[in-house]
Each structure stands twice: as structure tokens, then as C-alpha cells.
Write a protein that binds this DNA or RNA. Structure first.
Lengths: 105, 105
DNA sequence: GGCTACACATAGCCTGTCTACATGTAGCCA
DNA sequence: TGGCTACATGTAGACAGGCTATGTGTAGCC
């Protein structure tokens, strides 16, 4: 998959993977790999800054915890993050309809 | 639709709209509007440079013609452009499967 | 003479993803 | 003990490609 195609959809992916559960950054990357059958292998330099951005936007909150001596920052959706996720899903449907419609049969 | 979502898919759109017919730049913009029910209103500053890029890549060729006093550069797909279009369509299907799969139900 | 539609084109900005690098712990194994 | 791998977070800077703004010019209508 070309690198740039992801653009504008990363936020949706991150919100979706956090829907209904808390995960820390590293686990988010693994969850995305799993859910996509290995197609999505996002570099940490993509994910960590994006999580910070989403937190600044108020869609995520995080707290530090320590598991077997290692520090983790665990993220979960805020109320407005859930709303943002719903909006992203709607946008995704519109987007695929429009582009798919043009690419056509 | 957010601006950035188009990224990485513009080439596919342009190739698709030229599939089986010749069009000049302005008509390409109109055709995309039409096929997308108005959702895609691409600025000329997006389309013209992209067409040049695709031509440099060997996927399009163009010739000038004059219609009622106005000059037009008319584009059509090359053989390798048709192959590129097929590849783009495959990639689109993979892309939507992956992202849609993660965004889930 | 001024307006709108048609038609092409470029310079420079913007922004989000990627590459590369930096830092540190835990646990295994030889 | 030293080296390796997996785990875990983070930043700086490069890069690309779509967008904004701007410029040029014709045709046709009123």
C-alpha cells in the first residue's frame, strides 16, 4: 500500500482501535497490525506524535502506569473522542462512496 | 470532505475519468464534479500540475487543439496508463478493505 | 465597457506522514 | 558478563503532494 494513501485517515484508525478499550502506544501499533492482517505497520514516529495531537484535540486522555518495570502511557477515548470517531466513520463512508463511484466499474 | 483525504488517490481519479475517452483539463474537472454529484470540486491548481505529472510518468499523452478560438490541451491514456489505472483500482480495493476493516462495524 | 464562462498555468504555503535517531528496561542465553 | 531481542516512548528534520492565490488570455452576452 502506498504510504501517502493513509493521509487524513490515521486519526480515524487510532480512534477506532481505542473504541471501547484502553491501550498504550505500542499496543495500538500491534492492534492495528492484527486488525489489518499485517497490512498496517505504522512506525512509532507516526503514531506517537499523532496520539499527542489527538490528546491536544481533546479526543484522548492518557495516564502513565508501570507494568513489570516498564512505563506506559495508556490512552482512552474521551466523550468528544467518541463523537469524533462517529463523525470519522460517517466521513469514511462518504469518502469511499465518492471515490469508489468515480473509479467505477 | 476533509481536504487531505484525497491524497494519494488523485492519480486514480484522473486516470479513471480518462478511461475510454479524451478530455481536456477543464472538462476533466467538470466530469469529476458530475460523476461525484458535486462532491469533488478540484481547483485548477490541483489538477493541471497533476496532469503534467502523469504525463511525465508516461501514463498520459496530450495534444493541443483549438475549439472556437480557445486552445485546449487534450489528454488521453497511454497503454501503460491503462495498466496504471488497473493497478490503482486494485490498490483502492485493498485500501478500502484494510481501513474499512479497522474502522469496523 | 464590463461581466461571466471557458481554459491553462505556476509559485509558494501548509501539514501530516515517514525516516532516522536517541533513550531506557526486562529477560533470555551462552 | 556481555550481547541480543522485545518492549516502550519520544523528537528532529525531510519530504511530498494537494491547496491558495495569482496571472494570462479568449469568447460571448448584455
Amino acid at each position: 500500500m502506498k504510504a501517502d494513501t493513509l493521509r487524513g485517515h490515521l486519526d480515524a484508525l487510532l480512534l477506532a482501535v481505542l473504541d471501547g478499550r484502553k491501550l498504550h502506544g505500542y499496543a495500538i501499533i500491534e492492534a492495528l497490525q492484527l486488525r489489518s492482517d499485517g497490512a498496517l505497520d505504522l512506525p512509532t514516529g507516526t503514531v506517537y506524535p499523532a496520539l499527542r495531537r489527538l490528546e491536544r484535540a481533546g479526543w484522548l486522555t492518557s495516564e502513565w502506569d508501570v507494568v513489570s518495570g516498564r512505563k506506559r502511557r495508556t490512552y482512552h477515548l474521551t466523550r468528544s473522542g467518541e463523537q469524533a470517531l462517529a463523525a470519522e466513520r460517517t466521513e469514511w463512508r462518504e469518502f469511499t462512496t465518492v471515490i469508489g463511484g468515480v473509479l467505477g466499474a
